[in-house]
Design a protein around this nucleic acid. Structure first.
Lengths: 333, 333
DNA sequence: TTGTATGCGTTATCAG
DNA sequence: CTGATAACGCATACAA
């Protein structure tokens, strides 16, 4: 009742050899229906459970994957991680979560740990710089895929991302469509490959509408602390500003709050749109327009590809772009 | 360059036995300073890394802990998980995350998997029912601690929670203090032990102010879909309502949005306060009063106690309550 | 101070 | 169809 059963115990209890038990458990090799029943019965009765440490050691496989994420309290990251974990579990893998806090040293330390644990695969989500697995250990060939973060070595890797460019283009277009003549983009200090793509989309929409992009006039960089002050200054020196594309919803909501404090009306004075379609967008006042990423599909594609990588030796190189969806609400009416 | 080194390789390369290498690595047993340097040098050069599967098998320890959480895209859960993971990593443990989605079957499946992997400990965060580890396997004695979720067997377990009762009491008091005469509580369908404590706090504040609690008059249950309709109905039949304590900030923000739609002014017509102090509270209009949980301390205490449990055989039973802090903002001015 | 030998629980190879 | 046994990489009791 209080002991942990091993395959050996099961063998003894059911009067067969350990080899046969292993065969039955893994449904591998041949054995009679009779022994199968016998063994399965004992397993049920004893509540036997595979010892994964042993199995891993023997098979050089761990049935677990690591996931590197900058900040799990971010809505988009949390949602993607959650969905990935769910699918992986269905496929028999467990997920080791690693919160890198955008710290390169931490990232390295995590990578080492994960390698030690013999993870079968790795998913890298976002982060400031291009991802270079060779920094950990040139010997290791852990299959990995990148989400929203370009790998350093573009060959031999899979890269998955939302169509940030198109989303930003659509978002900015929607500012114009709702009457804005002089939109700007609000970014924050963190720089990621997705952020760069969104900036490109903004620029191209601007130029499409006959406005040349100029960083000093069309872009503001905010930190959490200075939003209102900075906004006030900018709006004073450029009173023509009548639309803001925020690099994500967190920034958008800070901007919205600042605008209201400054007595500006959204969308009457200034149109506003964000990115990520966070749940609270529906509950701001006015409700916040945004661009929705297809996290279901991102997660699905990520896991499918990773498992493909794990099971096959053929190395692929691919860049997968997931479409996004514009979610117009009152802030761009 | 492309091989994975084992302790045996290191032994050969440095001209000692595997036992000595093991001793040096674990700084265990005695060996000369000279051999130490020799071995360490080879380890550096080769980039040797411990094979944890083997170590785990031998030591019957996995240096990993599981964490059961209902929904990681919830701000409070995400924050706590993130902080726990960070501290655990510093202590040499990796964290296997399990998103139970409040589903008991999933929880069971996860528990089995975690047991198979030989996790050293378990952290259970919230969830609807009391937690009963015996459902997995009567044989297993995995040390575990509960956060925000009462364990079934109160003996032999550690329970950590914010002072939900006091927080709710303070929150409701603050409604009265800002002039509310007839506050109600807004809950949602999920029921947890923390939710029950918050409800108790609300009731006691009511009675303290001379109002007997009556479910049909002082409590409304919302779902995400029906908030505005339900609010309208309630406010029509009970126009005296002038204060709302929402069971958490997500509910509070939905309520706030509904109230604005219904033409009610917050805080002039109705005072409002939530729970959890989510970041967006600072950016709603008006800013949302709330009760802040000390996630740093919760995480710290949780890890400390779990590691204590793992390393000692002495079983403890304890209930640890972490103080909360009232965060008054404009919605209760 | 160091080396030898054993076993942890599995799977896989090879006989039977 | 089934059984004995080697091997995975490591820590440790025991010998030297």
């Amino acid at each position: 009742m209080d002991k942990k059963y091993s395959i050996k115990d099961i063998a003894q209890l059911s009067g067969v050899s350990v080899a046969t038990v292993s065969r039955v458990i893994n449904d591998n090799g041949r054995f009679s229906e009779e022994t199968r029943k016998k063994v399965l019965k004992v397993i049920k009765e004893t509540g036997y459970q595979t010892n994964f440490s042993a199995k891993n050691l023997r098979m050089n496989k761990s049935f677990s994957v690591g996931i590197l994420v900058p900040d799990i309290s971010n809505y988009f990251f949390a949602t993607v991680v959650q969905k990935i974990e769910k699918i992986l579990f269905k496929c028999g893998y467990s997920t080791i979560i690693c919160n890198t806090a955008r710290d390169e040293d931490k990232e390295l330390a995590y990578l080492k740990m994960l390698e030690s644990k013999g993870i079968d695969g790795l998913i890298v989500i976002s982060g400031a710089k291009a991802f270079d697995i060779n920094k950990v250990s040139s010997s290791s060939k852990i299959p990995f895929i990148c989400i929203d973060r370009k790998p350093k070595d573009k060959k031999n890797t899979i890269f998955i991302a939302s169509d940030h460019y198109q989303g930003a283009l659509d978002a900015t277009d929607s500012l114009f469509n709702s009457g804005s003549k002089h939109p700007i983009i609000a970014t924050h200090k963190h720089y990621s490959s997705s952020g760069a793509d969104r900036l490109r989309g903004f620029k191209d929409s601007l130029e499409k509408h006959g406005l040349p992009f100029d960083t000093s006039r069309n872009q503001i960089t905010l930190t959490t602390e200075n939003t209102t002050i900075k906004m006030e200054k900018v709006l004073k020196s450029q009173p023509e500003i009548d639309g803001i594309f925020a690099i994500n919803d967190t920034v958008a909501i800070e901007v919205l709050s600042a605008l209201l404090k400054l007595g500006k009306s959204v969308p009457n004075d200034i149109k506003l749109i964000g990115f990520d379609d966070e749940p609270q967008d529906k509950h701001t006042y006015p409700t916040l327009s945004s661009v929705k990423q297809d996290t279901d599909r991102i997660a699905q594609v990520a896991v499918e590809n990773l498992i493909g990588l794990i099971n096959s030796t053929g190395i692929t190189s691919e860049s997968i772009i997931i479409p996004v969806e514009l979610m117009p609400r009152d802030s761009t009416l």
